Amino acid sequence: MKTTSLFKAVALVAIMIASVLNSEVKAQDGFITNQVMNGELVASKTIFKQDGSYLRNHMQYTFTYDDQNRLVSKQASKWDGVKDAWVPYFKMTYQYSDNEITMNYARWNESHKAYDEAVQKSVYELNDENMPTAYKAYKQDNRNKSDWTLVDHKQMDFTTNLLAIAR
């Protein structure tokens, strides 16, 4: 039961994060999505942009999970028509503890050919049923890479949110 609740909480957090960070690939007219499944888990997702009767590569996501089927990373790539190849864009990693989920966001650094250290971090506090109760967003201090600045903090009333969604 706890694993199911944790999975639901992780799914909810992933959906919230995806909706915020991926505004350019919202479900709109002109975009087609293809998902590759690994059992019940999404292994990858490719977003195509519809151009008349043609589909053009747009974004690609790959997902990795731990042995408890919890999302541990999401990597995004953008299509580069000049290079005719997928180019890394960002990577989100997830860490789980008893009452928290920490998500780190890092952008691809083309000059280093690697993901930079996390530049944004979100921490979701969970209650005993593994449902989010608070959200904290941090940005990395540009001068001192080990310092994080709190930029947003929200307490969540999950019952109110569920009632709002149900309507």
Rank of each mutant, 00 (worst) to 15 (best):
K2N: 12
T3D: 11
T3V: 04
V13F: 01
A14D: 13
A14R: 05
A14S: 13
I17V: 11
I17C: 02
S19E: 15
V20P: 00
N22E: 15
F31G: 01
N34W: 02
G39S: 02
E40C: 04
E40T: 09
I47Y: 05
I47N: 01
I47G: 03
Q50H: 05
Q50P: 04
Y54F: 14
R56C: 03
R56A: 08
R56M: 11
N57R: 07
H58G: 05
Q60H: 11
Y61K: 06
T62E: 07
F63Q: 03
V72M: 03
S73L: 01
K74A: 06
Q75P: 00
A76I: 01
K78F: 03
W79N: 07
W79V: 01
K83F: 00
W86H: 03
V87L: 10
F90E: 14
M92K: 07
S97N: 02
N99P: 00
M103A: 13
M103K: 07
M103R: 02
N104M: 10
N104S: 12
R107L: 14
E110K: 13
Y115N: 03
A118H: 06
Q120K: 08
K121C: 06
S122A: 10
S122L: 12
V123Q: 04
E125N: 06
E125V: 04
L126Q: 02
L126K: 03
D128L: 09
D128R: 12
M131R: 14
Q140S: 04
T149R: 15
T149N: 15
V151Q: 11
D152Q: 07
H153R: 08
M156K: 11
N161M: 15
I165D: 06
R167F: 12
